[in-house]
Simulated scan of single mutants.
Amino acid sequence: MRILLSGPSIPPAFDRIVLIFNPASSHHSDVLAKALHTELGYRLPAMTVDLLPTAFAGHGRALAREVAAAGTPLIVSVSGDGGYNEVVNGAMDGGGRAVCAVLAAGNANDHRRSTRRMPLIEAIVAGKVRRIDLLRLQVGERAEAWERYAHSYVGFGLTPVMALGIEGGTKGGLSELVSVVRTFRALEPFEIARADGARAKLDSLVLANVAYMAKYGKVSETGEPNDGLLEVIMLPHARRWRIALMTLRAITIGLGPQESVSSYEFTTVDPLPLQIDGEVMQVNAHTSVVVEVKHQALATLG
């Protein structure tokens, strides 16, 4: 028997709650979304709570944009990092007034692991909203430019290769690590031209807003998601054993303190894959890339 305790009827921070989820997810997002919907009905009976399933890739962004354009909603993405990226970008498209949160239902859940302070349901009931930074990625210039926000990181080189290796392999801790090791064979160094004209040949470059990424790795000891800075985790081109050693260190003791800056800019020399919050994209050769911190741009809780 469930015993209901009296509590706040409607948190003042938002006027309704919308749960966005992928009904086809292999991580049972639909089950988690419906369970949260039921729990919120008990805990906040006066609050409007809607379930919005996605139908295709990118639909989460469109749904969040529409929801965020009216009032001050709380949008909960029942997903992994990629699904939450869609919701965050949709909320920013809709004016940035919405509060956003994630109920972890993905493979890595890096953002939730890095930013979790309390159970999500308790934070929703209490209406405890705080603000965190976002990373704004701009690729290209003038009419050819496009941009996207990242809640956690933007990675080049090793990071998207690892993501593709995990996606293509068997799921599970040891199997995923074996898949990552196998992808080292496909890793090619890349070259970037910095704003001062200097060039660098790298195996990996990660610009991070959180301490954890790639499910197992701790990439920074100093980064905080609301400090106005991003961490630069860079690996110059080296022998494969050095890359493996860095990966082993990341998943055991962590990589330690990293350089912190408010923005990072470079130009690609060759076509270059990137990974933004779990989603892999491609950048053309001779294209400018700017990643900058938008300080406390996102209202969140949990």
Rank of each mutant, 00 (worst) to 15 (best):
1 M>L: 08
4 L>C: 02
9 S>P: 00
13 A>R: 00
15 D>S: 03
20 I>E: 06
21 F>I: 11
22 N>R: 04
23 P>E: 04
25 S>W: 05
26 S>G: 15
28 H>W: 03
28 H>M: 02
30 D>I: 00
32 L>W: 08
32 L>A: 13
34 K>N: 06
35 A>R: 15
35 A>V: 06
36 L>M: 15
36 L>G: 09
42 Y>A: 08
44 L>V: 06
45 P>Y: 06
45 P>E: 06
47 M>F: 01
47 M>P: 02
49 V>L: 07
49 V>G: 09
50 D>F: 05
53 P>L: 05
55 A>I: 08
66 E>H: 08
70 A>I: 06
71 G>V: 04
74 L>D: 01
75 I>W: 04
76 V>H: 03
79 S>E: 12
82 G>P: 14
83 G>Y: 09
84 Y>V: 01
84 Y>F: 15
89 N>Y: 06
93 D>N: 08
94 G>I: 05
96 G>E: 09
96 G>S: 06
97 R>V: 01
98 A>F: 02
99 V>L: 00
100 C>A: 11
104 A>Y: 00
105 A>C: 09
106 G>K: 07
106 G>A: 04
107 N>C: 10
107 N>H: 12
110 D>N: 07
111 H>E: 00
124 I>A: 09
126 A>N: 11
131 R>F: 05
134 L>T: 14
135 L>S: 07
142 R>E: 15
144 E>C: 11
145 A>W: 13
146 W>D: 08
146 W>V: 07
146 W>M: 05
148 R>E: 13
150 A>S: 15
162 M>N: 09
166 I>S: 05
168 G>K: 11
171 K>L: 11
172 G>S: 13
175 S>V: 05
175 S>C: 09
180 V>A: 07
182 R>S: 11
191 E>G: 05
195 A>Y: 06
197 G>E: 10
197 G>Q: 03
203 D>C: 08
204 S>E: 00
205 L>W: 10
210 V>S: 05
215 K>L: 12
223 G>M: 14
224 E>Q: 15
228 G>N: 10
229 L>A: 04
230 L>Q: 08
231 E>M: 11
233 I>A: 10
235 L>W: 03
235 L>C: 05
235 L>A: 06
242 R>V: 01
242 R>K: 12
246 M>Y: 02
248 L>I: 12
251 I>W: 15
257 P>Q: 10
259 E>K: 12
262 S>D: 10
265 E>Q: 13
265 E>I: 00
266 F>L: 07
267 T>K: 10
269 V>L: 09
270 D>G: 00
271 P>G: 03
273 P>T: 01
274 L>E: 01
274 L>S: 06
275 Q>S: 12
275 Q>P: 02
280 V>D: 11
280 V>K: 07
281 M>Q: 14
283 V>C: 08
283 V>K: 05
284 N>L: 06
287 T>I: 04
287 T>C: 12
288 S>D: 13
292 E>S: 12
292 E>A: 11
293 V>P: 07
295 H>M: 05
296 Q>S: 01
298 L>D: 10
299 A>G: 03
301 L>D: 00
301 L>P: 00
